[in-house]
Structures are given as C-alpha cells and as structure tokens.
Design a protein around this nucleic acid. Structure first.
Lengths: 242, 242
DNA sequence: CACGATTATATGTCTAGACATTTAAGTCAA
DNA sequence: TTGACTTAAATGTCTAGACATATAATCGTG
C-alpha cells in the first residue's frame, strides 16, 4: 500500500505504467531532457517483468514522447512543435456529420488524352487518358465547395465508366481505390470569376484552397483542387507536444 | 529457402514481418477487410515465437493499418481518409530552414488585466493578467506573417518579464513551456487595413489564417492568430491511408 | 593531458511457455 | 425460427529467463 501502484485497476498493467509516465511528462513534472527511471527500476516499482515495462516504454517512444538511448536510459523528448493531426474528411461525410443536407452537382466531365498540363499536374511523365471533373458540393442548398479533379485512367480504369453525375468522385474513389497516400497543400487565393459564380461569392473574395495529390505505391491516382469560401470553412488540426 | 523468409536481413525479425504485411496492404494486395494470417500461421511462416509476430501486429494496429478482433482475427482497415499529418513549424525555424534571412519586429506589447474578450479568446472563466503581443516576421526583409498573441500570465508568469522585443514569443514559449497540447484552425480571410499595411499587401487581399490555441494539462497558455499573405504561404500535410 | 582500449550497463530483441478475455460459431430446447 | 447456453479459437497480457548491441564511463598508456 505504500507505493502508488496499489488499487485494483480494471486496466492492464502496462497501460497503467504508460499512463503514469505520460501524465508526469504532460504535466511538466518530468520536463524535456529528464531521465525517466530505468526499466529495472520500474520493474521494481511495479513488481512486474521487464517485458511489461518495456512494452509501456516502447509505446511512449513510438509516440515520440520519450527517446530511448542504449546504456544511457530513456529521456523526455523536447516537443517538436511541428506536427499536428489534420482531419480532412470526405466532403459528403463532413456535411452530413454537421447535420446539414448534402447537395451535389456535376458541372463538367471530360474524358481526354492527357495534355501536357494534365501530366504536369498529375506528376507523371507519360499518361494515357484522364478524366477531368468539375463539380460543386453544397450544404443546405448553399454552395460549400467547388472541386476540380483529374483522375489518371491508367491507374483507375474503372473511373472511365463511373457515373459521377450522381456520386461525387471523392466518395467514389474512396470506395474503389484502397490504401492511398496523399499530400495536401493548403493556401488562400482570391476567387476568380468562374469560382465566384460557382460559390455565389464576390470576385476577389478570399477562398481556402486544398490541393490534394493522391497516389498508391508510386502510381498517381488523382489530383484535386478544392475551393471553399474563406469565411465559411475551417480546417481543424489538433496535436500534442509543444 | 522455399519461403520468402530467408536472406540474412540486417534488420530485426519483427520489423521485417511488419514491413512485409504493410507492403501488402499498401500495394492493395490485401485490400480493406482482408483477413491477414493468424498469429499462429505467421509463427509457422517465419519460424519464430508468437510474441514476435504479436509485436509486429500490435504496431500495425497502433498505426491503424489493421484492426484486431478477438476470436475473429486481424483485418486490414478501411482507410480513414481524414487524418493527415500537418507540419506547423516555429516560424523562425521555418524561415531559416528555407535558407532565407529571418527578421522580427515587435509591433506592440501590452500587459493588462484580462478583458472579457481576452477571457473569451483564452477560453477561461476568470483570468488575472495577460500579455498581448503583436509582431511581424519577415523573410529576406519581405513581410512573411503578422502575429497577434495573448499569453495567460497565470499559467506563464515568466512571460511578464520576457523581452519580446528581441525574441519572438513563439520561440520563447517553445523554450519555456514544455509539453503542451494545441488546436489549430485554418481559414482564409480578406486583409483588413491594419493587416494589409503590416504585410505590405492590398486591402482585401486573401490571407491564410492559423488560429492556434495552446494549453497544458487543462491550463490555457496562449492563443495566437497568424496571418500570412495568401499567395506566398502554403501549408503542407502528408498522410497515409485512403 | 589526450587518446585508445576495456568494461559495465541499459536498452533491443527474442523465446517458450502461461492464463485471461472476448466472441464467433455451434448446440439444444422452447 | 428463435433465444439461451456452451465451446472453442484467436487475441491480450504477462513471465522469467536469454543473448545481442550500442555506448557512457573507466582505466591505462603514451
């Protein structure tokens, strides 16, 4: 009863060890650079085997909260202050999650041999055919975002015959192309005439832009630009660590 | 020699098992929903103990690539399509990393009892004193971003006497307040007169806005708004999974 | 004092078991 | 057919060891 390790916890031991240490780090009790107890000390404190504390410490190391150095010990890491988890949902799912009615409208669809500009945008040397799609998403009948997308048909041949007049291409791809990697670039631009009309905002009004480039094991799949009215849309990112 | 498990790898076994499985998932060979081999099957395939394959699978589960269900097995997860890792560096570090010269200028600093607006912005019920800071960051002598910050002195008393005329508050906080959590909100707005002047852009020009709210174990630390000229700054987020 | 060799130590990985827990699937009766 | 009970299979956690490996600290030597 003398140690802080009594109490019939319902959780498992290694999780409790991990939580104990995480708490001390997050509260600042153990600041960056602080050496946390050696494995054998934790073994003694918690009365368990080394594998158990090792599992706890390994997970903390994986989460970048601590750094482990052979012979020296484990140390609280200096916070990175540079990585945050950004949630970018499928637009349809996002609007529905907000409790608003989702509307979708296909503005244009073209199937063509890739032009030089297309190849440049997709980041490929040579491409066969591509589908170019322009569409608009709305929430409660108010324009929410316009989408301008290019799909590489050599990677996703099915997209040639998909019916994008009913289903938004983002949702379609999500269900037909598993496990991709992507890169997002976020910026702000002034609405040009075409955008202003589609979003029902003034020409020159600020828009939030997300450019997403998606590939799967080195094969380009799609490049998309999403334009949101700047005053109505927000991206939220959360993170831990400095 | 018959299995794909020979070869004197320099890496450890559990990492190889993890990499093998990850590769099959990422290439689509094992699509979402696919049941990956049972632990005892992998034990047989790799000729190791169960703890070793368990470690590999546990890490894949932690990375959300697979889902483990008792009695049923382990399954490739459907990609989330909503979490991306966004890198938001300290501005000074970011500019220096770009190989450009960093410039900093303190525009205003006020120490005051928290007003209602301050409390609202910091998300606290009652607050004693706060420091309000306005400053400008520049790269190669061109305005890069303007910063508008509020620091809760009841959480960071040292900030009252820190010299923010030389060191940017973001960098100062990074070195004086360890292990925080934060939430970022990204949006786009039109530059108002004050912002336009500070950034040397036209009034009404689009700006990328990052609002960051930082706390540490339930204590608010700082709230900051960063305004970047929309045409010059980009945020890049990378992710894996759908 | 400087520098190279040695040693001690903490972590990294692994084993061959064990028991607990969850739950899919099968069994049987109403 | 349905619902309750049983069973078995897979994962979850844990142990008490083992050897490997990197490296901080020490010791010797020039």
């Amino acid at each position: 009863m003398s140690l802080a390790t009594d109490a019939a916890d319902k959780t498992t031991l290694y999780k409790r060890i991990r939580a104990d240490i995480e708490k001390r780090i997050l509260t600042g009790e153990w600041p960056p650079g602080h050496r946390i107890p050696f494995e054998h000390e934790l073994v003694a404190r918690y009365g368990c085997s080394r594998m158990t504390v090792n599992k706890a410490l390994s997970e903390l190391a994986q989460a970048d909260l601590i750094e482990r150095r052979r012979r020296a010990g484990s140390f609280v890491r200096r916070p990175q202050h540079l990585s945050a988890v950004l949630k970018i949902a499928d637009i349809r799912a996002e609007i529905i999650a907000l409790g608003r009615s989702y509307g979708y409208e296909l503005i244009g669809r073209k199937l063509r041999a890739a032009t030089a500009a297309d190849r440049d945008r997709l980041g490929v040397k040579k491409a066969g055919k591509v589908v170019a799609i322009t569409c608009r998403h709305s929430a409660d009948n108010v324009p929410f975002a316009v989408e301008d997308r290019l799909i590489d048909l050599s990677s996703v041949p099915n997209a040639a015959t998909a019916d994008f007049s009913r289903e938004p291409p983002g949702s379609w791809l999500l269900h037909h192309v598993p496990w991709t990697e992507a890169e997002h670039t976020i910026s702000a631009i002034a609405a040009d005439e075409r955008t202003a009309e589609a979003l029902d905002i003034a020409v020159g009004a600020p828009c939030l832009v997300i450019d997403r480039y998606t590939w799967r094991s080195a094969r380009t799949i799609t490049a998309v630009r999403l334009l949101y009215p700047g005053d109505s849309h927000r991206l939220v990112a959360r993170f831990k660590g400095g």
